[in-house]
Amino acid sequence: MTQTPERAATSTSGGARIVDFLDAVQRKVQERASTLPTVAALIIFVAMIVYGEIAYGRIVQFSTLSNLLINNAHLVILAVGLTFVILTGGIDLSVGAIIAFSSVAGVMLSNAGWNPYVVILLMILIGSAMGLASGILIQYFNVQPFIATLAMMFLARGLASMLSTVPERLGDDSAIRAFATQWKIIDGPKVNDLVVTPGVLIAAIVVAIGFFVLHRTRTGRTVYAIGGSEQSAELMGLPVHVTKLWIYVISGTLAGIASVVYTSRLGIAQNITGIGWELDAIAAVVIGGTLLTGGAGYVLGSVVGALVLGLMNVLITRDGGIRPEMTTIITGSILFIFVMLQRGVIGRGR
């Protein structure tokens, strides 16, 4: 990967440098075929931005990109959680319903006059508790992850509906809304400002921690090992059981955090919030290059995947000619292409 000194010295011209760079990328990709889908996701993301800018304009500007991040912060957080789960070869279908339950419970408690910080903590802990329940079902009762989290999904959705079936509005003065405060980083002309909310910041921190845990801790390495071969991981003496439990707690907790971020932005909670979001998050993870069978993938890829989905919605809105109903078809097509791409990569790896 590192250039030899002579080569670096001779390649001073821009063209040669680009060739060198492409060479290095190619070598890197060959060395790790598993990075290919993630690289492809990045390329598609960039291509979508370029296409959007040329076709509709006003894409590469602060306000659009800021909104993209702000509106998808919760999806990014969910995608990080699902990356952990999917890396082990599991699945978590409960995250969307957890958001509904946590969000409705949070808003109602807040409106009932509870301390907002206690409420926020509780909203997150609701997620952790549901994740823990899934994890226990999977690890100690030997329930398939699909079934266990499906059960938790129904449970959480049902609990949310029991609390309320109408939109619950968060009080305008609630401290929870602070997570949606818009901080102007760069004050551009007209409304073209670079804006960041605490929600976006939280998403960034979650991504950073997720990256650290997966790549720089033994727990993270165990996650990859389980995805590679659970039996081998166990025979290598790795703490497979505890780790698998943790995975679902992490996913649930992040769903709780996503709920806080989303609720603060919208200010409304409803029992039907978040239907299908677990599938959006899974789509983001897969588009980002994580293998659905586990063992290969990157948190940063999932972030790109979430942003690809978000950007797609922006482009469809801008186009105006595409009916919004088409969105899911396009999402499905992108997903299909990525899964095919992954198959190709696996096929070549063997």
Binding site: S34, Y224, A225, G227, G228, S229, M236, G295
Partner: peptide
């Protein structure tokens, strides 16, 4: 052989003992 084919040689050797 009970190793993880999705990881590198070094990662396999050191798994759990990084």
């Amino acid at each position: 052989v009970n190793l993880c084919a999705n990881l590198s040689i070094g990662e396999n050797v050191m798994l759990g003992h990084e």
